[in-house]
Amino acid sequence: AEKTGIVNVSSSLNVREGASTSSKVIGSLSGNTKVTIVGEEGAFYKIEYKGSHSYVAKEYIKDIKDE
């Protein structure tokens, strides 16, 4: 089941290729951006990003809701 969340950062949140802080950064999301969460892996959520799937750190996503 998909969930949505809100990016909870003051500046921007790195979007990564994989579920690791050493993964390549492929983009960023600004605070209060709504994201669609399709899964989770460790400390990361797998999200829909620009037509494919990428990862963001869970600690920076708030207001998780089931869609």
Rank of each mutant, 00 (worst) to 15 (best):
A1T: 14
A1E: 09
A1F: 14
A1I: 14
E2F: 15
E2D: 10
E2P: 15
E2K: 15
K3Q: 07
K3L: 10
K3R: 14
K3N: 05
K3I: 10
K3V: 09
T4Q: 09
T4K: 09
T4V: 12
T4D: 05
T4A: 07
G5L: 04
G5N: 03
G5H: 04
G5S: 03
G5W: 06
G5C: 07
G5D: 02
I6E: 05
I6Y: 11
I6H: 06
I6L: 09
I6Q: 05
V7E: 01
V7W: 02
V7P: 03
V7F: 03
V7G: 04
N8A: 14
N8L: 09
N8M: 13
N8F: 09
N8T: 12
V9K: 10
V9Y: 06
V9W: 06
V9T: 13
V9Q: 07
V9P: 08
S10W: 06
S10D: 12
S10T: 13
S11V: 13
S11H: 14
S12N: 10
S12A: 10
L13V: 15
L13Q: 04
L13A: 14
L13H: 03
N14F: 09
N14G: 08
N14K: 13
N14C: 15
N14L: 15
V15E: 01
V15Y: 03
V15L: 06
V15R: 01
V15K: 01
V15G: 01
V15F: 02
R16S: 06
R16H: 15
R16M: 15
R16D: 01
R16N: 07
E17H: 06
E17V: 09
E17S: 10
E17N: 09
E17G: 06
E17D: 13
E17M: 09
E17K: 07
G18S: 13
G18N: 10
G18E: 12
A19F: 05
A19W: 04
A19R: 03
A19Q: 03
A19I: 05
A19V: 05
A19N: 04
A19C: 06
S20M: 06
S20K: 06
S20C: 08
S20P: 02
S20W: 06
S20N: 09
T21G: 09
T21Y: 14
T21K: 13
T21H: 15
T21W: 13
T21M: 15
S22N: 12
S22M: 10
S22H: 11
S22W: 06
S22P: 02
S22V: 09
S23Q: 03
S23H: 07
S23L: 02
K24P: 10
V25K: 05
V25G: 02
V25N: 03
V25R: 04
V25M: 05
I26F: 02
I26G: 01
I26W: 02
I26D: 01
I26V: 11
I26E: 02
G27F: 03
G27M: 02
S28K: 14
S28W: 14
S28R: 13
S28I: 13
L29D: 00
L29C: 04
L29Q: 01
L29R: 01
L29K: 01
S30T: 12
S30E: 13
S30V: 11
S30H: 10
S30M: 14
S30I: 12
G31I: 09
G31Q: 11
G31E: 09
G31Y: 11
G31H: 15
G31W: 09
N32H: 10
N32V: 05
N32C: 14
N32S: 09
T33N: 05
T33L: 06
T33V: 10
T33G: 04
T33Y: 06
T33H: 06
K34E: 07
K34I: 14
K34W: 09
K34V: 13
K34N: 05
K34D: 03
K34P: 07
K34C: 11
V35M: 02
V35I: 10
V35Q: 00
T36N: 09
T36W: 13
T36D: 04
T36G: 04
I37W: 01
I37S: 00
I37M: 02
I37D: 00
V38K: 05
V38T: 06
V38D: 01
G39C: 06
G39V: 01
G39L: 03
G39A: 07
G39W: 03
E40A: 07
E40T: 07
E40L: 05
E41F: 08
E41M: 08
E41W: 07
E41C: 12
G42P: 02
G42E: 06
G42A: 05
G42W: 03
G42F: 04
G42H: 04
G42N: 07
G42Y: 04
A43C: 12
A43I: 09
A43P: 13
A43V: 08
A43F: 08
A43Q: 12
F44M: 04
F44I: 00
F44H: 03
F44A: 02
F44C: 04
F44W: 14
F44K: 00
Y45C: 04
Y45V: 05
Y45M: 03
Y45T: 02
K46M: 13
K46E: 08
K46L: 13
K46I: 15
K46H: 05
K46C: 10
I47R: 00
I47T: 01
I47H: 01
I47D: 01
I47W: 00
E48S: 08
E48V: 15
E48Y: 11
Y49F: 12
Y49R: 00
Y49A: 00
Y49L: 03
K50D: 10
K50P: 02
K50M: 14
G51Q: 06
G51T: 05
G51L: 04
G51N: 07
S52M: 13
S52H: 10
H53G: 05
H53P: 06
S54A: 15
S54F: 15
S54I: 05
S54N: 07
S54V: 14
S54T: 05
Y55C: 01
Y55F: 12
Y55Q: 00
Y55G: 00
Y55P: 00
V56T: 01
V56M: 02
V56G: 01
A57F: 09
A57L: 15
A57N: 09
A57K: 12
A57G: 09
A57W: 08
K58M: 07
K58Q: 05
K58G: 02
K58H: 02
K58L: 03
K58D: 00
K58Y: 02
K58F: 03
E59D: 09
E59M: 11
E59V: 09
E59R: 09
E59H: 08
E59L: 08
Y60P: 02
Y60R: 05
I61L: 06
I61A: 01
I61H: 01
I61M: 04
K62P: 02
K62W: 10
D63R: 10
D63A: 11
D63T: 14
I64P: 06
I64D: 07
I64C: 09
I64T: 07
I64G: 06
I64H: 07
K65C: 11
K65E: 11
K65A: 11
K65L: 11
K65F: 10
K65G: 10
K65D: 11
K65Q: 12
D66N: 12
D66S: 12
D66P: 12
D66L: 13
D66K: 10
E67R: 12
E67S: 13
E67W: 08
E67G: 13
E67H: 12
